[in-house]
Design a protein around this nucleic acid. Sequence first.
DNA 1: TTGAAAAGTTGAGACTGTCTCGATATTTTC
DNA 2: GAAAATATCGAGACAGTCTCAACTTTTCAA
Lengths: 206, 206
Amino acid sequence: MNAGTPPPRRMRADAHRNYQRLLTEAAAAFAEHGADFSLEAIARRAGVANGTLYGHFPTRRALLEALMGDRMRALAATGAELLTARSPFDGLVTWARAAMAHTTIYRGLGATLMQAVEDESSELHAACKAVLAAGEKLLARARTAGEVRPDVTAPDLYALINAAAWAGEQSSPPQGERLLTFGLNGFRTSATDQALPLPKLTPAPK
Amino acid sequence: MNAGTPPPRRMRADAHRNYQRLLTEAAAAFAEHGADFSLEAIARRAGVANGTLYGHFPTRRALLEALMGDRMRALAATGAELLTARSPFDGLVTWARAAMAHTTIYRGLGATLMQAVEDESSELHAACKAVLAAGEKLLARARTAGEVRPDVTAPDLYALINAAAWAGEQSSPPQGERLLTFGLNGFRTSATDQALPLPKLTPAPK
DNA sequence: TTGAAAAGTTGAGACTGTCTCGATATTTTC
DNA sequence: GAAAATATCGAGACAGTCTCAACTTTTCAA
């Protein structure tokens, strides 16, 4: 079985070396200077021509995908584990905080993540969907337990996480966490007493 | 009195004309393409050399200040009016929505607004402070009425407004409004029953 | 009215960054 | 040990920000 060796093509040795170097330098540069850092400079730091960088990663997004893919999938897995948390709401909160920390890895990453989830052609799309699905499961459990409002959606949670991360970058990390906390409290059923009606989302054209 | 005529220097006629044209074109371009639109292109559209634009507005921020100053002050005034709303919380909500709509005028404006409030050298600083003060008054009234948690601060409100506007730009306007709504609900006292503790803000160095 | 002085404008040019592509170099494979 | 396949290189086409010395227009006092 599997004698056809469908995708056996290995990367050439020098190519693989450059690929790794680029990833390493990009991770360092993005962590220090944010996700908008010059690709040209990253290539320079990695000791390759910029054409080589573009050869491996045609877009900035492709580079971010290579850096983020695993992290995103790990986050989805964490979500699955938290489905067994004592309190459904606590599980949700713990996960949301982890997700926010994750977005904060590179300054400016939030915008990419928000766009990737809606852009099917994005290389981060699948990973974002997995994260969204993990959020939905946690949300569903909390909903069933009567701990969050029935009208809270996974995109609401996703938007809250990224928006709070954004706010944290703009002013200070604790400010971001406060925002996340307020938002999550706003999700709670206990707030529903005199709760405000929510604007409807226009259903995205399929 | 006032015989010294401290700042009587009027702008030269041609300068004034160019200044106005630049403002007009910038407003149109920012509204259509966002606050990051090319200044070079704005100068072109206004029929002046780019050096002229930089002569009038040394930075993009200076241009935004000229465009936003009045609007910001108007927003602060609206806040003062809403202090007489029947329900303190409703007044707060109404104002927060107006503030968010205001941030949404130019895509990408939120980041500038978030930074301006902390940067004393920003030309938008005073206007931001006025907006913050208006928010604080509405918040204080709602706090006194027992409608919002005692630990909600004006910066929380300001961050929520801008973060919700950001989210709205990233995905869709209604998503932004939903986020604002959840956040405001999270401010409410009714959510305090089982409320989460808030992370403390590290006091900004005076 | 007029002609300096003051004020304003111009646009080339120095940078930085994105992205492409033909020429060149290195590996791999047979 | 070459041919074939695969990568790399780096110049160059663009676009944007920002500066500045030369030039032009306006103002205003005599």
